[in-house]
C-alpha cells in the first residue's frame, strides 16, 4: 500500500458570498507526507473537507485515488480526516472509541493506538470530553496515526498540544509512516516544526495556490542578497523582491527565483548570498500588509 493520491482540478468552493477556494489546481502525491500550509482562512480546512467528502465543491473536481470521493465507499473507507474537534465519540470512554474504530476501519491498528496513548500519557478509561484540550488533540493524533488510512488528513491536530507532546506526535507519525507508507497531509502553521517532516508543500492563500512543490525545491527558490546597497540593487534588478532592509550602506534583499550564475555574480560584486527558510518564505509570500499583493510562484519560479 502506497496510499491514495489526490488530484485537484479547478476546485472552487463558495459559502454564500464567500469564496473559500478559487479555482485551485494541485496534486498530492501518493505515499508522500505533504504539508498544507496557509494562514487562517486560506482554505486549508475547506480543501480537506472536500477531499474527505465532508462537503462538495461548488465547481471543479477532486479525485482521490482516481475517483470522486463523494459517497464513494471504497475511497472513503481509505480516507481518514482528523479535525480539531477530533471526530470521536466524546461521551464514551476511549477504550470504547478504539473498539468502534477497530470494527469499522480495516487498517486500524489497536496495538499502535494503545502504545501511542501510553506515550502521550492519555488514560484510555477516560472519555474524550473529560480530557484537557491538549489531550483531546493528542487523542485525535492517535486516531489519525493508528487508523493507517491510505489517505490520512490531519487538520491542525497539534492545537493545544504542548511542545513535548507535539514532538512525540512528529516522531510517531514519521516512524509509523516509514513502517507503513501512505499518503499523509498535515495542515499546520507551525512551519518551523513540521518542515523537516515534509517532502511536498502546498501553500494556500486567500483560496488560491501560492506554491506547490517539493519542500527542498521550494526552499531553494528563496535567496537573500546582502552587501553594499547599490550592488544589491543592481543584483536584484528585474527579480521579484519580497523584502528589503537597509542598515547604513548595507542592504539585504530577499528575492524569489534563482539563476545558475548567481554565485559567480555575487562573488564578483562582493555580495553574500543566503538561504531563506520555509517559514520566512511563507511569511514573505503571504504577508499582505504594505500593499504588496501576493502573487503565486510562476511555474518557472516554482520548478
Amino acid at each position: 500500500m502506497t496510499g491514495f493520491g489526490v488530484q485537484v482540478r479547478d476546485l472552487t468552493v463558495r459559502y454564500g458570498p464567500t469564496t473559500a477556494l478559487d479555482q485551485v489546481s494541485f496534486e498530492i502525491r501518493p505515499g508522500v507526507i505533504t504539508g498544507l500550509l496557509g494562514r487562517n482562512g486560506s482554505g486549508k480546512t475547506t480543501f480537506l473537507s472536500v477531499a474527505a467528502a465532508f462537503r462538495r465543491g461548488t465547481s471543479g473536481a477532486v479525485l482521490v485515488d482516481g475517483e470522486d470521493p463523494w459517497e464513494n465507499a471504497r475511497v472513503m473507507g481509505g480516507t481518514c480526516l482528523v479535525r480539531e474537534s477530533g471526530d470521536v465519540v466524546a461521551d464514551e470512554p476511549i477504550t470504547e472509541n478504539l473498539r468502534f474504530l477497530a470494527e469499522r476501519r480495516p487498517t486500524f491498528d489497536r496495538a499502535t493506538a494503545e502504545s501511542l496513548l501510553d506515550r502521550l500519557e492519555i488514560d484510555p478509561s477516560k472519555r474524550p470530553d473529560k480530557l484537557s484540550r491538549g489531550q483531546r488533540s493528542a487523542f485525535g493524533v492517535v486516531v489519525g496515526v493508528a487508523t493507517r488510512a491510505p489517505l490520512t488528513l490531519l487538520d491542525e491536530v497539534h492545537l493545544g498540544m504542548d511542545a513535548p507532546a507535539r514532538y512525540a506526535f512528529y516522531d510517531a507519525l514519521l516512524a509509523d509512516w516509514m513502517a507503513h507508507p501512505r499518503t499523509i497531509v498535515v495542515s499546520s502553521h507551525l512551519i518551523d516544526e513540521v518542515e523537516r517532516l515534509l517532502e511536498d508543500v502546498v501553500i494556500l492563500d486567500h483560496g488560491r495556490v501560492l506554491a506547490a512543490d517539493d519542500a527542498a525545491t521550494l526552499r531553494e527558490q528563496g535567496l537573500t542578497v546582502t552587501g553594499p546597497a547599490d550592488e544589491v540593487d543592481a543584483f536584484v534588478t528585474s527579480r521579484r523582491v519580497v523584502a528589503r532592509q537597509t542598515l547604513g550602506r548595507t542592504a539585504q534583499a530577499t528575492v524569489i527565483g534563482t539563476a545558475p550564475d548567481d554565485e559567480a555574480r555575487a562573488r564578483a560584486a562582493g555580495l553574500e548570498l543566503g538561504a531563506v527558510g520555509l517559514q520566512d518564505l511563507f511569511v514573505h509570500l503571504t504577508d499582505h500588509a504594505g500593499d504588496r499583493a501576493a502573487a503565486p510562484l510562476t511555474p518557472q519560479e516554482s520548478r
Binding site: Y167, Y170, R196, E199, A215, A216
Partner: peptide, 17 residues
C-alpha cells in the same frame, strides 16, 4: 535514510536526496 529520519526527525526523502 531511516536512521537519519528517526535520529534527526526528518523526512527520509531529505536524506535520500
Amino acid at each position: 535514510t531511516t536512521q537519519y529520519a528517526t535520529t534527526f526527525r526528518i523526512n527520509p526523502a531529505t536524506a535520500a536526496k
